[in-house]
Design a protein around this nucleic acid. Sequence first.
DNA 1: GTCTATATTTAGATAGAC
DNA 2: GTCTATCTAAATATAGAC
Lengths: 214, 214
Amino acid sequence: MSTDTRDRLLHGTIEALRTQGIAGVSARTIAAAAGVNQALVFYHFGSVDELLAAAAIWSTEQQVAGYRERFGRVRTLRELQRVGRELHLRESANGNVTVLGQMLAGAQTNPAFAAATRDALGLWTVEIEQVLTRVLADSPLGEVADVPGLARAVAASFIGMELLAAVDPEGDQAAFRALDQLGALLEYLDDLGPAARVAARRAVRTAVRRSVRA
Amino acid sequence: MSTDTRDRLLHGTIEALRTQGIAGVSARTIAAAAGVNQALVFYHFGSVDELLAAAAIWSTEQQVAGYRERFGRVRTLRELQRVGRELHLRESANGNVTVLGQMLAGAQTNPAFAAATRDALGLWTVEIEQVLTRVLADSPLGEVADVPGLARAVAASFIGMELLAAVDPEGDQAAFRALDQLGALLEYLDDLGPAARVAARRAVRTAVRRSVRA
DNA sequence: GTCTATATTTAGATAGAC
DNA sequence: GTCTATCTAAATATAGAC
């Protein structure tokens, strides 16, 4: 069956990216992971690169769908951090986010990968934007924050942390603790009185103007 | 001359990583970029992998040294953001930080790379720790912050943003603007009165305990 | 749609002349 | 230390039988 083989190849590509990295994937390693003949890579996807690009988007779609419900329940920054930590722990273990990191590395020198990786990242940022909009709704940040920009910063940082975790697990844990502290500080701002919040808004707006000039 | 050839190979390796990525480097592409014979890769470094690891550390040492003076002058979060933005702009253009991203991608499936990349990242985090210690000295964060953890979060996020910039330049700019806003909010905390700062410290400490439990 | 066989290119690595 | 020549393994990709 054609769709079955296509699916096996997509699965096999992710598996190969996980275990071999972007530098080690090949039609043969993918086919071996997929349990199909090597020539089928070219029959179904034309080339290894096209399969990699297709697999990146396919895999990200599935992952994002798996977290959509959980994201939808997030109402506070604390909950968002909690989900982020869960996601980090689970995906560090199964290596699915690392796959995006591998694609991102390949994308630096491959325009076709760049488009696919941008689209895959976009699937995450769309979700993160929605969550951030809710979370920041009644915070001083919410009224002036560049939510799309913040969502991209979160996604990029997350992938950086995911890549870090593999080479320095203790450093990664320390980094996550530090980000929890940062979140606590931001939440604290929500508990301030009206006068302080006005001042906080002013500070943020000033920074916005400053960064626009820069 | 031996040292000359070694240097050419190190230079050539970085150049090859920049233009071909971790997936495209080979003894031949490196030798071509270095302008030396391909066999010299193995004579001087034993293997392509060993050369890549050596080049990652060598290149990072040089880069970090080039920013040490500038880092030393940073006294406020605002200045740190400014230097970070400069660094991002310059290194996006010359692609040197992307090289660390490429090594990080390769490190996910190569233990020897993992050690080299951890060491190279360590060169950055050592500097960032010093700057953060100064910058946070008289902020509520300074007294409870996990500065080493924060430094690693900054380094990892920076590399993530660097990788993002190549696939989504507009998204990358928006992300940097959003981080500027975040910095402004944190600076605002420094301008709070004594009572508010005590409360902020308490909020951060609570978060620390919370994250230790998690 | 799938498999075998194969053409072609490129990779890492080494032997040996200079 | 450097270069040429070369071995071997592995890569992409395709033709053609089934």
